[in-house]
Design a protein around this nucleic acid. Structure first.
Lengths: 203, 203
DNA sequence: GTCTATACTGTGATAGAC
DNA sequence: GTCTATCACAGTATAGAC
């Protein structure tokens, strides 16, 4: 269950209409990723983003079907980049130890966290173009967390009486809520709040 | 500490420019409140809202300094309406019992919950006109929850080893996160997740 | 005082020139 | 393939009718 909700054309070429616009697209995704992660993305608009990337807004519109498409590409890129290292950490130390660290790491990329929170809120509308994508990310996260909790339980590090579906959702919900509060007040210690909660879950 | 962040002119009259536009404003707030709570507010725009209320968008702009001003007025109205009953419930049964009920009540007004979530995400930008207002609401909520937790502790219903500031934020964060997930999937049982968490806190 | 009519700026999207 | 030119719609502001 990988839930690859993005269309992924074979890396070399496809999509008939153009020969290798794919490569240009990848370049733009990388640039956008960097801009969002560092510069912080205040006042997000296609024209402003394009300006940062040194292209026209229409050029961006050519490479990405919509603004939503661009943002989704950035997130998919991030996920793919972080996945290997994350899986390794989880395997070695378990989610109970890794989760607070993830929260701390996120403090280094406020722009992406803000973008994520904004996207998620905007896409609540069922007819929003990014609705299914975002819903899929939420489900996938809950699924992944649940799986990691199972592993912890197998290792005897988790209380035996927990409903793992429920617990997974509690964790992802609290993490989300803490992110929002942290965005409004950077002195909020996301990791500390998560750690205190995870203590309740330990065997 | 009431944190009355709205300007509140004396009920009778003030504001020099008009004699009693205040009353018309109140009417519009009531109508808007009803529309948001029931109709669900999909595709929010001043023109669309005005259409629902049976006035022109310019008329709305006359009574409210900005779109943000209108939305804030709606939320302030809701808070003032619910406050007395809420305080009574809290006094009688305590937050540990009332919170899950509140979550259930919220399921009856998805439009307002969605509006709330959207506003909160949009106002993350420090230069957003609603930033301070929203930040104030978050702080106020954490403050109120913390106070109620203190009461529960005094009544001996709460574990003695809890950091109440931290616990309050855990609660509000999880509640927020659950709301978001529920907006994407109405089968998510917010009350059940909250109840299970509050169990950890009981003496 | 309240509202209609109108216009200004900035947004995301897109048809068609190159 | 790429990007210019243009579009429809957003929030906001204001002039003037009533």
């Amino acid at each position: 269950m990988t839930m690859q909700s993005r269309d992924d054309p074979t890396p070399t070429k496809r999509r008939g209409r153009y020969a290798n616009g794919q490569q240009r697209r990848e370049e733009l995704i990388d640039s956008a990723f960097t801009v969002f992660a560092t510069h912080g993305f205040q006042r997000l608009s296609l024209r402003r983003i394009a300006e940062e990337l040194g292209v026209s807004h229409a050029a961006l519109s050519y490479h990405f079907a919509s603004k939503e498409d661009l943002l989704q590409a950035v997130f998919t890129r991030q996920e793919q980049q972080d996945r290997p290292l994350l899986e390794q950490s989880l395997m070695e130390r378990g989610i109970l130890a890794v989760l607070p660290e993830l929260a701390r790491d996120n403090e280094a990329i406020p722009g992406l966290i803000q973008l994520d929170a904004t996207m998620q809120a905007e896409a609540i509308r069922p007819d929003h173009p990014g609705h299914e994508f975002t819903r899929g990310r939420i489900d996938q996260l809950n699924f992944d967390v649940r799986r990691e909790l199972e592993r912890e339980r197998e290792r005897g590090r988790l209380r035996a009486d927990l409903d793992l579906d429920l617990t997974a959702r509690q964790i992802t919900a609290m993490a989300r809520g803490l992110q929002m509060q942290w965005l409004y007040d950077p002195s909020v210690d996301m990791a500390a709040h998560l750690t205190a909660f995870l203590e309740f879950l330990r065997a």
